[in-house]
Computed example of a mutant assay.
Amino acid sequence: MKHSVKITLALMAMALAAGVGLWSESGSRDTKLPSSLCGTEVNRSLSRLLLGAGAEVTERNEVDHGRPRPSSWCEVFADGKDALSMRFAWHPDAIDPYEVARSVNSVSNVARPQRTDSVFQTVVGNNGAISTVPCKTSAGSYFTLTVLMKDADSVDQTHRADIEKFMRAYFPATVSTLACR
């Protein structure tokens, strides 16, 4: 009996040591990830889902949260490669993100969109997501955010859950920065 307790304790100690090692290693990789993307604070663990651990992140950001324009883009680069494209759009009329995603004329290019159970109207696809909400500003009465992973395969569902998790946190955080009336 004492022998099995020693083995169990030894295994627990090894697991704990490995866990601490993984945790601290992960933490050091995340320090390269920014605490905000395109002007919105975001948890680094969510950024890691779409950008990868340890990526050197830069962005080309045309979005001014305080002075919205009808359409503004923010491109996020990971290790110099185009990783995410975000379109911040304000418009006068309500839209259905599912219909936008399915339109052949859409700038969204969200592959295989499906509606999600969310507070906001949201669709998630294999390579991106679209969310919309009423948000009166000088640029329009509704705000829509499209997030696209540039290197995601449109037929592969590998990133779908990560995209949804990111959007569930990032979209409301972005809306809170917009001074909607």
Rank of each mutant, 00 (worst) to 15 (best):
S138A: 13
A139Y: 00
V124G: 04
S141R: 07
T144Y: 05
F143D: 12
K136N: 07
I130S: 02
T132R: 11
F120T: 15
A139W: 00
G125A: 00
G125M: 03
A129S: 12
Q121T: 15
I130A: 04
F120E: 15
A139S: 07
Y142T: 01
L145M: 14
V124K: 08
G128T: 02
N126S: 02
C135Q: 09
S141E: 13
T146I: 13
A129R: 04
A139V: 00
N127A: 12
T132D: 14
A129K: 00
G140F: 03
F120H: 15
S131A: 06
S141W: 11
S141L: 12
F143M: 12
N127D: 03
G140V: 11
L145E: 08
S141A: 14
T132V: 13
Q121W: 11
T137F: 06
F143V: 10
L145A: 06
P134A: 02
G128E: 05
K136F: 06
V123E: 01
G128H: 07
G140E: 11
V133A: 12
N126V: 10
Y142F: 13
S118A: 15
F120Y: 15
N126M: 08
T144F: 02
V119E: 13
P134T: 05
G128S: 08
N127V: 04
V119H: 14
S118N: 13
V123N: 09
T132G: 08
L145I: 10
V147I: 15
S131N: 01
T132Q: 13
V124W: 00
T137K: 11
V119R: 15
L148H: 10
T144H: 00
S118Y: 00
V124T: 07
Y142M: 01
Y142L: 01
V133H: 03
T137Y: 05
T146W: 05
S131G: 04
A129P: 03
Y142E: 13
S141F: 12
Q121C: 14
L148P: 11
I130Y: 07
V123H: 08
A129I: 02
S118T: 14
P134L: 08
N126E: 06
P134W: 09
S118L: 13
L145Y: 13
Y142N: 02
T137R: 06
K136Y: 04
V133Y: 12
L145D: 03
A139N: 01
F143C: 06
T137A: 08
T137V: 11
N126T: 10
A129D: 11
S141Q: 14
N126H: 11
A139F: 00
V124R: 10
V147R: 07
I130M: 05
V124F: 01
T122P: 02
C135M: 01
F120G: 15
P134F: 09
T132Y: 08
L145V: 08
